[in-house]
């Protein structure tokens, strides 16, 4: 008896039809968690039966930014930090699209930090997936706004001394309607969270803590990607609905995970249409969808 007994030649990896296979293997390091998040994303797309003709993936620059290039969907790889502004334009011009922003922590919270805050404040209907590896990976391991205190980086060889961003708290305070955090260890939960975000109208933010074995784990003597995953397994604690002010990350401490915020408030377009109807009355005609020919 062996595995050959039920060989299924036509069975393929569920992620395969979503990949531009001519670009494989990807450039992500062994033990990097970004590929795992892509698996979760594609499983969420399959399970939610999302209309792929109406789905757009926008990403910025960085390791995570390459996701847009590897996915065989309508995807766009924008300039550094400008994934959210590009996605905002897409969503406002074509409100029927589901717009997913797939970006890293540096791209979203540092270079595009202002855009993140204001998109959350305006409650633009975007699904933001933030793969947080706690460091600038592609550029050589510099301190990022999310780097926890005392972590060694190439720009802080004696340890980071500045306090890091608590991203769920930031977007919650700015007004996001859905905020969750998981790690790459929590694959099923990430996929479920993404499905919930697809159903939500408004600014949804999912932070996924991911290993960066080459720059973060190595410099901090925290082992490789597998050791990071074991640490996530042991240190993460599900705290659904926890006040986001208390879920900050530390270098070796507990990782609070779960769905922190799930609320409803009118999104940008709804408010805009309402306001125009109120002040212009019948003169205002909704343009609806722009059609490219």
């Amino acid at each position: 008896m062996s595995e050959v007994d039920f060989e299924c030649a036509e069975c393929t990896n569920p992620v395969e039809p979503f990949l531009r296979s001519e670009r494989m293997p990807h450039i992500w390091c062994p033990g990097c968690g970004i590929g795992t998040t892509v698996n979760c994303f594609t499983r969420a797309l399959i399970d939610s039966k999302a209309n792929l003709e109406k789905l757009v993936v926008v990403s910025g620059i960085g390791c995570t930014g390459r996701v847009a290039g590897y996915l065989k969907l309508d995807s766009f790889h924008t300039t550094h930090g400008r994934a959210i502004p590009f996605a905002t334009g897409l969503k406002l011009a074509n409100p029927k699209l589901t717009v997913v922003v797939y970006a890293g922590d540096g791209d979203l919270s540092a270079i595009g930090g202002n855009h993140l805050i204001h998109a959350a404040r305006r409650n633009i209907d975007l699904k933001v997936i933030c793969v947080n590896n706690l460091i600038y990976g592609m550029t050589g391991g510099q301190t990022a706004p999310t780097t926890p205190e005392h972590a060694t980086t190439s720009t802080n060889p004696y340890g980071t001394f500045e306090p890091g961003f608590n991203l769920p708290h930031l977007v919650d305070a700015a007004g996001a309607v859905y905020v969750a955090r998981w790690t790459t260890f929590h694959v099923r939960q990430v996929a479920r969270s993404m499905q919930e975000a697809f159903k939500k109208k408004g600014f949804s933010f999912i932070e996924i803590i991911s290993p960066c074995p080459t720059l973060y784990q190595r410099r901090n003597k925290m082992g490789d990607g597998l050791d990071a995953m074991k640490y996530y397994k042991q240190a993460s604690k599900v705290k659904n609905g926890a006040p986001t002010g208390e879920v900050g990350l530390t270098k070796t401490g507990e990782i609070a995970v779960g769905k922190f915020v799930d609320r409803d408030r009118p999104d940008y377009r709804e408010l805009m249409v309402h306001r125009f109807h109120e002040s212009l009355g019948d003169e205002y005609v909704e343009t609806g969808e722009l059609v490219c020919s």
């Binding site: 299924c8 990896n13 992500w28 062994p30 590929g35 892509v38 698996n39 990607g225």
Partner: peptide, 14 residues
Amino acid sequence: LCGMYCPDFAIFGY
């Protein structure tokens, strides 16, 4: 679960 974890899309189970 191996297919969900694999960052290199190299394995899947059925």
